[in-house]
Design a protein around this nucleic acid. Structure first.
Length: 781
DNA sequence: CAGTGAGCGAGCTTCCGCTTGACTT
């Protein structure tokens, strides 16, 4: 039995460290936090100075049990969770939950996983830093108070099941406000002029005019002037320039770059990176630090020198500028720089490649360039064409890697300008004035939202991906494709043959993979920004972080800080709960010509809807759900009235009615008890679908259902059925499905008793969402 | 699941930050 028990947060880390420490040390993992505030009564006793009520998390009971046993047998327990606020709290929770004693407990930290760093930490143990733990408690309690008091106000004032929080609500606000900005944006038009010149040796190059014209006639006049103008090079200048590599990856920059270059979602990036980390190929992927360990710097330098030559190596240390960075880990880098390729499968290999290149490039020398600028006199005061050229003199880090850019149409000039001299006469082959339009700020992508949140210091590396999932799951925002519309623009080209004008067409407003607010998102954001402006303020997190820092420094009491906040927050919240109007985003669309009643669009109990008449009217109001792509903010009266044409009777099939409608899960056609989904993407629309096509879809559904069918136990009471699913046979009992145990070879031979037993067994097992009951079944065993 | 949109009321929903697998019909 080893004398020492070391506890870290991650099992992969545990494995690595165990190798460094030798046989006297057993290294185990806590799998992150082991305790959390209970859900009941917020888990905070507000009346009792905000006393937190912690409990072991249901999925951590086994871990804690095991660690407790091991700690009893060990001579010394080393709490080696991360060197930041959360890590310190994990150490403290372990200390409490494992019932450790001060005499045989040491707290150690290291921000890099190297033998030297770990051995050094063992030589320098310390106590748990109570101030830092209290800063974490303040953070935790504040988030709980805000989340668990604000959310119920939304249930009451808008719709059940909604949520609000310090991080997610700001994320939604960013997206909603950007969309409003885009909606209010009016594109300005202007004319951009680009010329293609040839010098006396017949070498050609492009140059852009230093002025944009406001309108067509100015641009035309200018081209007119050009036709009579003698062009020459007024000045030419060549300057050396440098480019430096970007810092190695943090979680946020990794997510951004993987989105730009590999088209990964942020969640995808994290799960692929997790696999690489577990395989020991990269360092920890949830980090806010750009720091590399000394060992890593040396290894990178050696690898670069060997592979590209000594000239290419340059050791650099990057400082982390991110607000609130805690730097408990290194930057994301390959574990071994001499592994140029690694990973299983295409995704892992591509992500590894990106990480390897970025890390290596960060330790390489600057690229040396030569930038050349030609200025060419134009026909008029201060009007000149400018040509830029760029030549790489020494590649440096560019040999390996260049950071991507979010700028959609950066016309980065590259290539050389032809050798020319000052005063040299130029002829033009074409001078083109093209009508252009100013652009609104881009919608957020997952990755650009993460970037923005990080800039604001909101959220942590471990929460960026889950935050995006949450706001999509709550249906505050969606990732959808916008079609865009056609727009005419004018192109005027001057050549030796004279001026040629063309009207061309382009698509504008098309967008994909962007985050777009839903009606619910907009209404929730409107409500929160109106009534809880301080929480939704972009600086709220930054200002509470300052207070957490003071607590961590021992300069403030955590309960006093929370009290200070709560004394304003809580009464105000109660006031809003009492007195504010329901927020439904209601908009009057017009009057129903038949009944003369008002037609309104609003958020209903089940989402965005249209309503004719009022609930207080004698005859009941009529309702209809909005369809995908429609919004209560933009739907027209005519579109709204169309919705009341559903459900539609299509006709009869085998003597039974066939109808089309839109249900909670989308458009469908119905025949007897069969509901068959129809796909608008395939050109089927419940508004226009014809009987013949509906029957096709229904027949296909009936056939598919038959193929799934294996057996039923009682024809008269077909409650329990055995069916074939995508992942093998399963039991269907009423509305619930149950997986068949692997032992069962022939599902068709299943008896009723066996089936009932399976259902009973499954009922005992914990459901995913309420795993609290799991301990009961497990303790029985 | 295949309608509903108010209100009644029990009991539920909900936060952020640390971690991995379990699971999907």
């Amino acid at each position: 039995m080893p004398k020492n028990l070391v506890i870290v947060e991650s099992p992969a880390k545990a494995k690595t460290i165990e190798k460094f420490l030798g046989k006297d040390f057993q290294v185990e993992s806590s799998y992150g936090h082991i305790r959390d505030l209970v859900q009941k009564d917020m888990g905070v006793d507000v009346a009792n100075n905000f006393a937190p009520n912690y409990a072991i998390s249901s999925d951590k009971k086994d871990v804690v049990k095991k660690l407790k046993k091991l700690s009893k047998d060990a001579e010394m327990v080393w709490l080696a969770s991360d060197e930041d606020r959360e890590g310190e709290a994990i150490a403290w929770h372990l200390y409490e939950a494992l019932e450790l004693a001060p005499t045989n407990t040491n707290r150690i930290t290291f921000s890099e996983i190297t033998k030297k760093a770990i051995e050094n930490s063992i030589q320098n143990p310390r106590r748990i830093n109570t101030d830092l733990v209290n800063a974490q408690q303040a953070r935790r309690v504040l988030d709980r108070l805000v989340g668990f008091e604000l959310s119920p106000v939304l249930w009451k004032k808008i719709k059940a099941g909604l949520s609000a929080g310090r991080v997610q609500s700001v994320a939604v606000r960013l997206i909603v406000e950007r969309e409003i900005e885009i909606r209010n944006f009016k594109a300005k038009t202007f004319y951009k002029v680009v010329a293609e010149f040839s010098n006396t040796k017949g070498k050609s190059f492009k140059a852009e005019l230093n002025k944009k014209f406001d309108n067509e006639s100015e641009a035309r006049d200018f081209l007119d002037q050009c036709s009579k103008h003698k062009f020459q090079i007024d000045s030419l200048e060549t300057k050396p320039a440098k480019k430096s590599p970007a810092a190695p990856f943090t979680t946020s920059t990794l997510q951004q770059e993987a989105a730009r270059k590999l088209y990964f979602s942020v969640g995808q990036t994290m799960s692929v990176a997790q696999k690489l980390y577990e395989a020991g190929l990269i360092t920890y992927m949830r980090t806010d630090s750009t720091n590399l360990s000394d060992d890593a710097l040396a290894a990178a330098s050696a690898e670069i020198s060997e592979h590209y030559g000594k000239d290419f190596a340059k050791t650099r240390r990057f400082s982390t500028k991110t607000k609130g960075a805690q730097e408990a880990h290194e930057a994301v880098r390959p574990t071994y720089f001499n592994r140029h390729k690694a990973g299983t499968g295409d995704q892992q290999q591509r992500l590894y490649d990106l990480i390897w290149k970025r890390s290596i490039a960060s330790q390489m020398s600057d690229a040396e360039l030569e930038r050349t600028v030609f200025r060419i006199n134009g026909p008029g005061e201060k009007l000149e064409f400018v040509a830029r050229g760029e030549v790489i003199k020494f590649e440096g880090f560019l040999k390996v890697y260049l950071e991507g850019t979010d700028d959609e149409d950066s016309d980065e000039q590259s290539g050389m300008l032809p050798a020319s001299s000052k005063g040299e006469a130029l002829s033009y082959s074409e001078i083109i004035a093209t009508q252009r339009f100013s652009k609104h700020a881009p919608r957020f992508t997952e990755a650009s939202l993460v970037k923005k949140l990080e800039e604001l210091g909101i959220g942590r590396p471990s929460t960026y991906a889950p935050t995006i999932s949450t706001i999509i799951k709550r249906q505050y925002v969606e990732k959808s494709e916008l079609e865009g519309s056609k727009r005419d623009y004018l192109r005027m080209a001057l050549s030796v043959d004279g001026l040629k004008e063309e009207k061309l067409q382009e698509t504008t407003g098309a967008d994909k993979n962007k985050l777009i607010p839903t009606d619910i998102g907009s209404v929730v954001n409107g409500f929160l920004t109106e009534h809880f402006h301080n929480i939704l303020d972009y600086n709220f997190t930054a200002s509470v972080e300052q207070k957490f820092d003071q607590i961590a420094q021992g300069q403030a009491e955590w309960t006093a800080m929370i009290d200070d906040f709560y004394q304003d927050f809580h009464p105000h919240l109660k006031e809003v709960e009492e007195n504010s109007e329901r927020a439904t985003g209601e908009r009057v669309l017009g009057e129903d010509p038949k009944s003369g009643k008002q037609v309104i669009a609003r958020i209903g109990r089940y989402g965005p809807m249209i309503q004719i008449g009022d609930v207080e009217d004698e005859d009941k109001p009529r309702f209809a759900s909005l369809r995908k792509g429609q919004s209560i903010d933009t739907i027209s009266f005519e579109e709204a009235m169309e919705l009341f044409k559903l459900p539609r009777e299509l006709g009869e099939y085998q003597g039974e009615k066939v109808s089309a409608n839109i249900g909670r899960f989308g458009p469908y056609v119905k025949f007897k008890s069969t509901f068959a989904s129809i796909k608008e993407a395939d050109g089927d629309d419940p508004m226009t679908i014809e009987l013949e096509r509906a029957i096709e879809i229904i027949d296909a559904k009936i056939k598919a259902d038959k193929e799934k069918f294996i057996k039923v136990f009682d024809e008269a009471k077909p409650e329990i059925q055995v069916l074939n699913g995508r992942y093998g046979p399963y039991l269907k009992s009423g509305r619930k499905n149950f997986k068949l145990p692997k032992e069962i070879e022939d599902p068709a031979a299943l008896t009723r008793e066996e089936a009932e037993k399976i259902i009973e067994e499954s009922a005992k097992k914990p459901a995913k969402s309420r795993a609290r009951k799991s301990t009961k079944t497990k303790s029985k065993k």
